[in-house]
């Protein structure tokens, strides 16, 4: 199985909420001080899905990441986890894209990789939560797609995918090559092993510029956007919590119940 996994470097979504700041002038997030960026957690589920297949059937995994200022120690994580190659689409022209321009650039990068049976993406990324790039890549490359996968088995050259639905899950059979987006239900991504980390240190990523993947600068990044961001803001919280007290926790609990009854909540 030849597999491609789309990954992304993001602001650590686990950073404390208090450290989250937006610069209103630029409509951008101010990277929290002293908090290192991470590989998007949803992308890690996608890597895990590919590694599970590699464990079972063997194969090659190529991770591809688009962005600027990609810290090598961060974006090499898929290699440390067990992926074989890392390609970075790295150029100012790729920056500040939306789902359209990002999916387009990734699709053209994947086209250049050429030989693939499955392309994996996270179901969304933890920064913009757009949830569209996977479907976009599939559409641009003319591939069948299955989103929100929680389990994937390969039999007779087809993938059998358990897809999370609002009611439970459904089992979908899809012909290959295909694009699959992976949900968190796939299970915890593995930790890199020491051996993996050592191997990743020695491996250099391949860098592709727009011309390398045959795209015009006007089609990618900010220039290729179909959507316009008008405003990015932090929702205002109405903080007026009434702390219910008591001599001890048990008494506070009784007072809370009475309070809720009084407020007709109960």
């Amino acid at each position: 199985m030849n597999m491609v996994v789309c990954i992304k470097q993001v602001v650590d979504p686990e950073a404390p909420p208090a450290s989250f700041k937006i610069d209103p002038a630029s409509n951008k997030v101010v990277p929290p001080q002293g908090v290192s960026p991470v590989v998007d957690p949803y992308a890690e589920y996608a890597i895990e899905a590919a590694l599970k297949i590699k464990d079972a059937l063997g194969g090659k995994i190529t991770a591809i990441s688009l962005g600027i200022n990609q810290l090598r120690d961060i974006v090499k994580k898929p290699l440390a986890m067990g992926a074989d190659e890392l390609i970075l689409l790295e150029d100012e022209a790729f920056d500040e894209g939306d789902s359209w321009s990002t999916a387009y650039a990734l699709a053209m990068g994947i086209k250049k990789i050429g030989d693939y049976d499955i392309i994996f993406c996270g179901r969304e990324a933890s920064d913009w939560n757009a949830g569209q790039v996977g479907s976009g890549i599939a559409e641009i490359l003319g591939l069948p797609g299955v989103t929100l996968a929680r389990k994937i088995d390969i039999t007779n050259g087809k993938a059998r995918v358990e897809r999370v639905t609002d009611e439970g899950y459904e089992v979908i059979e899809v012909s290959l090559p295909a694009l699959i987006t992976v949900s968190n239900e796939i299970g915890e991504p593995r930790y890199p092993t020491i051996k993996g980390i050592m191997a990743a240190k020695k491996k250099e990523p391949v860098i592709w510029k727009p011309a390398d993947i045959g795209v015009e600068v006007s089609q990618i990044g900010a220039a290729g956007r179909r959507t316009k961001l008008l405003k990015l803001f932090q929702p205002v919280r109405e903080a007026k919590c009434e702390i219910v007290e008591g001599e001890n926790p048990e008494e506070a609990a009784v007072n809370l119940a009475l309070k809720l009854r009084e407020a007709k909540v109960l």
Partner: peptide, 10 residues
């Protein structure tokens, strides 16, 4: 956006 830390208007 940003896991609910922010909201975006598009």
């Amino acid at each position: 956006a940003y896991g609910g830390n922010a909201q975006a208007v598009f």
